[in-house]
Design a protein around this nucleic acid. Structure first.
Length: 650
RNA sequence: GCUUCAUUAGCUCAGUUGGUAGAGCGCUUCACUCGUAAUGAAGAGGUCAUCGGUUCAAGUCCGAUAUGAAGCUCCA
C-alpha cells in the first residue's frame, strides 16, 4: 500500500501498519512527538491500523487535534490520580478544551491543597509510565464492565450510545475509562501540566441534574510553555475590568446597595457620557428621532407584550396583584414604550421609516449567581432603538443598522475583536417562538443574504433568536475568553400585530409595518467593561477621564501652570494641575500610574519662553512646544477620536 | 439558582496550634522648592462584613445572612 505524507512524499509498505509504527518509520523523533494521526482528513488514534492507500499526517502538539489528544490523555491521568486518592469518586466526563482540559467527578469538593496532592499523584502516574491500551467491547459487556466498576455515569453514557456504536475503552495500568480517544501511547509522554482550579458543574450541563466536582487543568509539552501560559493567566487578571475598573475608580459596588447594582464613579461617568453624546449625535445624523419614555409601567402593558406571562420572573414587580389596585413593574426592555410613541398619531406610508432612539435604562432581575462586574448587572443603560418600517424598506434599514454598528466598532478600535452571529429559531422548539415557520425561514434568509452581500463573516446559531424574530448578534470575548453580546439587531415581522400598529398605504389601506429592534453600541456598562479590558485602562484620549496634567517643577511656577491649565480647560479638555510639594519625578510617576495621556512639565524655561514640555505615552510627542500648538494637536486628536499607538514601555 | 473559595485601615494585603491588631501605598502636618518613573520626618485612621453560637478567652473554631470571585446553569 502507498501512504502519501503531508509533504507529498510517499511511503510504501507491504503489510498493514499502525499510525505510530509509520511515525516511527519516518523518524524516532516524530514517533516521540506523535499525538494522533489524520487519515484522509479524519483524525485517528495512533493505534489505528492502516491497510490501504491513503493520505496520512502525523499530528503533534502543534496541531489542534494533536493538542486535544495530548490534553485529553492528561485528563485521564488526572482521573487515575483522583481514583487512587479518592476511590469512592465516580467518573463522569473529561474532555480537552481550548485552554486545557477538565474532568468531572461525583465526589467531595477539592481545596487548593487537595489539588496539589492530586498533582503530586499525577506526577507519580506519569513517572510510572504505564502503556495506554485501547480495547473494544460489545454494548452489553461494556455496560456490565462499568457496572462492575460501580461507575453509574459511565453506564448512563454507554446506554445513550447508538445500538451499533463501537464502544471503546482506554486503559493505563489499573485505570480504565470509557473513551472514544484518540490518546497518546504512554502516560510518560505528558511533560508539563498544572491543575488550575476546581468548581461545581452540573451533570450533562443541566441544572436539574446533580452537581459534580470539576477540576480544570492544562498541559503543555514544555515547562517553559506552561509557565508562559500561567504567566499569561496572571497578566490578563491585570486587565480584568472588574479589578482594573475598581482600581481606576471607574465603578464600585456597595453591599447594602445590592448585587448587580454598580455605582459608576466620576471617572466612569466621564467615559460613559462621552460615549452617550457621541452615539446620540451620530444617531441624529442618521435620521433617528429621540424619545424619553417611563422607566416603569402598569402590569397591563406587559400583559399585552407577553412579558407578564413569560418573563415575570425576570422583572422587578412593584406591588402585589392580590392586594393592590395597580401593580407596576420596572421595564426590562423599551419596545412597547416606543411602540406607543409611534401609535400616538396616525402614520402615512410617507412617514416611514420611523427611527426611534432612546438612551434607555432597563432593569432585569438576574439570578444572584449571574452578576459580574459591569458586564452582567441588574440595572443598565443601552443605546436602544426601534425602527418602524414598511416591508419594502426592511432590507435597506437593516443594512443601515449594521453600518451604524460597524461604524461604532471601528471608531472604538474594536472591530477586529468581534464575531457576527445569525441567531435563528429552533424549529424543534415551536413553543418558544411566535409566528409561522415560513416567515422564520424567509426572514432568516433575508438576513443571511444581507450579511453575505456586506461580506461579513458569520456563524449561524440555532435556538438563539428572540421569540418574535431572528437577529444578528455581534459578540466579543472578555479577558477570560467568555463571550458576551455587545450589539444586537433584530428582525421583527410579528410584534406590530400584537400592538395593532399600522400605517396607511398609498391606496388608503391599513398595513402592518415591520420593526427592527437594535442597539448601536449595546449596553454602556458592558461597553465600558469591554473598553477597559481592550485598552488595559489606556483609553483613546477622547475617552480618558483625565486627558492632561500640568506638572510645575516647583511651587514657584504654580502661577504659570495655572495659566496653562486654564487655557486648556477653556477648550473643553479635561486638565488639572499637580500642585503638590513633590519632585517632578514623583509627579510624572503618579500621572503615569493614573494613566494620564499627556503630561505638561513647566518650569523656569517654559515660563520664560511661554512653552510647555510635553511628555506623553504616544510615540513622537516628546519635547517643548508652544501651548497653542499643543492645544491644537490634542483638540484634533479628540475631535477625530483618534486611536494612537501606545509607546512600548520597558 | 447551584458548587467552591473569600471578606482584617480609603486601597493592596500580613496575622503561626484561640490569649483583645500589623505592613506598604494613600491621607493630614512639617521640612525640602527640586528638570522628566517614586525626598525625608511625624501623625491620624480598624466593634477584624453582619448576626448568632462554642469557649475563661474568638480576627482565628461552628452556623446563618450579606457582598465579592471562579465555574456551572440562565441571559426574553
Amino acid at each position: 500500500m502507498k501512504i502519501t505524507l503531508k509533504d507529498g512524499s510517499v511511503k510504501e509498505y507491504s503489510q498493514a501498519m499502525s499510525v505510530i509504527d509509520i511515525a516511527a518509520d519516518i523518524s524516532e523523533g516524530l514517533a516521540r512527538m506523535a499525538c494522533a494521526g489524520e487519515v484522509d482528513g479524519k483524525v485517528v488514534d495512533l493505534r489505528t491500523i492502516i491497510d490501504s492507500d491513503c493520505e496520512l499526517s502525523i499530528l503533534t502538539f502543534n496541531d489542534e487535534a494533536g493538542k486535544a489528544a495530548y490534553r485529553h490523555t492528561c485528563s485521564h491521568v488526572l482521573a487515575e490520580a483522583v481514583k487512587r486518592l479518592y476511590p469512592e469518586a465516580k467518573l463522569a466526563i473529561g474532555p480537552s478544551i481550548d485552554t486545557g482540559f477538565y474532568y468531572d467527578f461525583d465526589c467531595q469538593s477539592f481545596s487548593r491543597e487537595d489539588l496539589d496532592n492530586i498533582e503530586a499523584e499525577m506526577k507519580k502516574v506519569i513517572k510510572e509510565g504505564a502503556e495506554i491500551k485501547r480495547f473494544e467491547l460489545p454494548r452489553a459487556e461494556a455496560i456490565q464492565f462499568m457496572e462492575d466498576r460501580n461507575e453509574p455515569y459511565k453506564v448512563e453514557l454507554i446506554k445513550d450510545l447508538p445500538e451499533d456504536a463501537i464502544i471503546s475503552f482506554y486503559s493505563q495500568g489499573e485505570f480504565t475509562d470509557l473513551c472514544a480517544g484518540p490518546h497518546l501511547m504512554n502516560t510518560k509522554t505528558i511533560k508539563a501540566f498544572k491543575l488550575i482550579s476546581s468548581s461545581g458543574a452540573y451533570w450533562r450541563g443541566s441544572e436539574k441534574n446533580k452537581m459534580l466536582t470539576r477540576i480544570y487543568g492544562t498541559a503543555y509539552t514544555k515547562k517553559a510553555d506552561l509557565d508562559e501560559h500561567l504567566k499569561h493567566l496572571e497578566e490578563i487578571k491585570l486587565r480584568d475590568h472588574n479589578k482594573l475598573g475598581r482600581q481606576m475608580e471607574i465603578f464600585t459596588t456597595v453591599d447594602v446597595i445590592g448585587q448587580g447594582l454598580p455605582l459608576i464613579m466620576p471617572n466612569g461617568v466621564i467615559i460613559m457620557n462621552e460615549l452617550k453624546r457621541w452615539i446620540e449625535d451620530e444617531e441624529s445624523k442618521r435620521g433617528y428621532i429621540r424619545t424619553q419614555t417611563p422607566l416603569m409601567a402598569k402590569s397591563d402593558l406587559y400583559k399585552i407584550s407577553g412579558h407578564w406571562d413569560h418573563y415575570k420572573e425576570g422583572m422587578f414587580v412593584l406591588g402585589d396583584e392580590e392586594k393592590d389596585k395597580e401593580v407596576f413593574a420596572l421595564r426590562p426592555m423599551t419596545c412597547p414604550f416606543q411602540y406607543y410613541v409611534y401609535k400616538a398619531s396616525q402614520k402615512s406610508y410617507r412617514d416611514l421609516p420611523c427611527r426611534y432612539g432612546e438612551t434607555s435604562t432597563l432593569f432585569r432581575n438576574e439570578d444572584s449567581g449571574e452578576m459580574h462586574g459591569l458586564t452582567r448587572v441588574r440595572q443598565f443603560t443601552i443605546s436602544e432603538g426601534h425602527l418602524i418600517v414598511r416591508p419594502d424598506q426592511m432590507v435597506e434599514e437593516f443594512k443601515g443598522c449594521l453600518a451604524l454598528a460597524k461604524y461604532c466598532l471601528e471608531t472604538l478600535g474594536v472591530e477586529s475583536d468581534v464575531t457576527y452571529h445569525l441567531s435563528k429559531w429552533d424549529p424543534e422548539d415551536r413553543e418558544k417562538y411566535i409566528g409561522e415557520p415560513e416567515v422564520w425561514e424567509e426572514t432568516q434568509q433575508h438576513i443571511r443574504e444581507i450579511l453575505t452581500e456586506l461580506n461579513i463573516q458569520f456563524t449561524e446559531e440555532v435556538g438563539e433568536a428572540a421569540f418574535y424574530g431572528p437577529k444578528v448578534d455581534i459578540n466579543a470575548k472578555n479577558v477570560y475568553g467568555k463571550e458576551d453580546t455587545m450589539i444586537t439587531i433584530q428582525w421583527d415581522a410579528l410584534l406590530a400585530e400584537q400592538f395593532d400598529m399600522y400605517y396607511i398605504d398609498e391606496n388608503g389601506e391599513k398595513k402592518r409595518p415591520y420593526i427592527i429592534h437594535r442597539t448601536s453600541l449595546g449596553c454602556y456598562e458592558r461597553t465600558l467593561a469591554w473598553l477597559i479590558e481592550k485598552y488595559a485602562g489606556l483609553f483613546p484620549t477622547w475617552l480618558c477621564p483625565e486627558q492632561v496634567r500640568v506638572l510645575p517643577i516647583s511651587e514657584k511656577y504654580a502661577d504659570y501652570a495655572q495659566k496653562v491649565n486654564e487655557q486648556i480647560v477653556a477648550k473643553g479638555i479635561r486638565s488639572s494641575v499637580d500642585n503638590r510639594a513633590e519632585k517632578i519625578g514623583f509627579k510624572i510617576c503618579d500621572a503615569r500610574l493614573k494613566r494620564v495621556p499627556y503630561m505638561l512639565v513647566v518650569g523656569e524655561k517654559e515660563k520664560e519662553a511661554g512653552l510647555v514640555s510635553v511628555r506623553s505615552r504616544y510615540e513622537g510627542d516628546e519635547g517643548q512646544k508652544s501651548l497653542d500648538t499643543f492645544i491644537q494637536d490634542i483638540c484634533k486628536e479628540i475631535q477625530t477620536k483618534e486611536i494612537r499607538e501606545i509607546k512600548v514601555q520597558e
